[in-house]
Design a protein around this nucleic acid. Structure first.
Lengths: 192, 192
DNA sequence: TCGATCATGTAACAGGTTACATGATTTT
DNA sequence: AAAATCATGTAACCTGTTACATGATCGA
């Protein structure tokens, strides 16, 4: 349900093609919402049918023609009324945590690799968010409501990544401990 | 894909009925994976067909008979080989952040309500995780690999909630600022 | 008496993923 | 020569949500 409103919000800020929207989801909106190009094109089609968008055709030679989408009044009103309805927080679904829950069966080397991959991802994302902050939100206190709210969304992304990094520190400390112990000697079996 | 492995991991630790598994997803696994009872029953059916589980029938009067599921050798092996395959980190999809991205169109009162709801949720979750930590993981350093890894998953949940609370502080500060300003006076329009 | 808890499901639908398709231009 | 970027989509599939169904017991 929220995909369409993410599209409307993005287009309302700046009309764009499906391709450009897909890119925004991968970059500026990475901390907010995610969608593949297939999903984007499908949903744009629906929004068009429902008269929430208008298309501006931009002919091109060599490439498929561009279609730039614009939000209509109907679209803006649908977005507004959605904004007033409270939304539940998204459920957690993280395969890495499922693995930790499996516990004993886990191979520690495989886990170590996955943790370091996650760390790389987090560092890269955080770096990218900082670049965005620099380029779009240089002086938050001087900006208007619109940008300050967008900046708040970005801050959420940054705090989330930092929180992952803090957890990864704990995780890697634990991993080091587990590896220092003999593989089969679980502490419960040892006498005090 | 991960739902089935979450079920296998949970059942491997302790055989259970679909109903009990649904409850675990809402409680101990809230920070790990989420699934509705419909999803649980459907997936248990599939896992049974694929011989990854066995059923133990427990007849009852008055209520539908219980079916307690147990992981088979096939199931355990499927779980193990999944554990070795690296999993991508889950994409972010949060309607609240979509709203912030919409920025200007947002009604600040509606936003304030939603933020305080989120805060309540985070406080409740964090409190619950602390209860779990107390009851299951009293002395982490004394426990074996299995519980220490599960505890690490729980720590992730706790850090995530704390990170939300930190962000909510920022959010509420910003909201107070925005409300202190006249509604239509965006700072860009003001002279320095 | 109304809602919650226990305990199981089915069916339809919406949302998200994977695979396939085309084809020029630019970068490695 | 191969891969990435630009630019659009279709089709099939899998996962997750919503609605419906049954029926007893227990506490407010």
């Amino acid at each position: 349900m929220a995909l369409r409103y993410a599209l409307l919000a993005a287009l309302q800020e700046q009309p764009a093609t499906g391709y450009e929207l897909t890119q925004r989801f991968r970059t500026r909106l990475a901390n907010v919402w995610n969608a593949s190009h297939q999903q984007v094109y499908r949903e744009l089609g629906r929004l068009l049918e429902e008269k929430m968008l208008l298309v501006e055709d931009i002919p091109q030679t060599d490439k498929p023609d561009k279609k730039r989408y614009h939000v209509t009044l109907v679209g803006r009103q649908a977005l507004k009324s959605w904004l007033d309805r409270p939304q539940p927080r998204p459920p957690v679904r993280d395969p890495l945590l499922v693995k930790l829950f499996a516990g004993e069966l886990l191979d520690l080397d495989a886990l170590a690799d996955e943790l370091s991959q996650r760390r790389q991802d987090a560092v890269a994302q955080l770096g990218y968010f900082r670049v965005i902050e620099h380029t779009y939100f240089r002086k938050p206190e001087r900006m208007g409501r619109h940008f300050r709210l967008q900046h708040l969304a970005l801050r959420r992304g940054m705090l989330a990544e930092e929180s992952w990094l803090a957890w990864l520190d704990e995780a890697e400390t634990l991993l080091a401990d587990l590896r220092a112990e003999p593989a089969d000697a679980t502490s419960e079996d040892r006498p005090a």
